[in-house]
């Protein structure tokens, strides 16, 4: 069931950790040995504007940005942004929007929403644990790393169970 390439669109608003999430995925894909590209669209993102990020890994792509109808997965972090971002999704793409509330319910610190949603996404991706672990090491400072890995694994497990009960 492994595809030739994986295209993921992330979106939400500044301050939700979207760039961090796409960064984590980029490094994990690289550690897994895939060619990978990532691109972002954000104006002055620290100040609450729309943020959008695209990650693609696998074979046979050139553009760092995805076009309409190219994303295999959509990870939307904010309800207001969902309609705008939905046009990136393929007809048979997977919209993880329904996981937003479930992921939010798992965490006590809203800063970890990105990690929880990444755990959900990870359930669908051909990237193994050691590569995720190394990516966490690269992207997260030591102080908060362990807690994030726990949330990530918990969310991934929950999603795996839901996909293949």
């Amino acid at each position: 069931m492994k595809k030739a390439q994986y295209n993921i669109t992330f979106g939400g608003i500044g301050g939700q950790g979207i760039i961090k999430a796409s960064e984590l995925l980029g490094w994990a894909a690289l550690y897994e040995g895939y060619p990978v590209k990532k691109s972002e669209v954000h104006g002055m993102s620290q100040r609450g504007g729309s943020v959008e990020s695209h990650v693609r890994f696998g074979k046979g792509f050139f553009s760092p940005l995805l076009g309409a109808g190219q994303a295999d997965f959509l990870l939307c972090f904010h309800a207001d942004e969902h309609e705008r971002l939905a046009e990136f999704l393929k007809d048979d793409g997977v919209d993880l929007f329904e996981w937003l509330d479930k992921a939010a319910a798992m965490i006590d610190n809203p800063k970890m929403l990105n990690t929880a949603l990444m755990g959900v996404l990870a359930a669908y991706l051909p990237i193994r644990q050691p590569s995720w672990d190394k990516a966490f090491e690269t992207v997260f400072p030591e102080k908060i790393r362990q807690r994030n890995i726990e949330i990530f694994n918990q969310a991934r497990h929950m999603a795996q169970t839901a996909i293949n009960p």
Binding site: G26, P35, K37, S39
Partner: peptide
């Protein structure tokens, strides 16, 4: 911007 801020391996 697109090249400065895009990432790849």
């Amino acid at each position: 911007t697109r090249i400065s801020h895009s990432k790849e391996d």
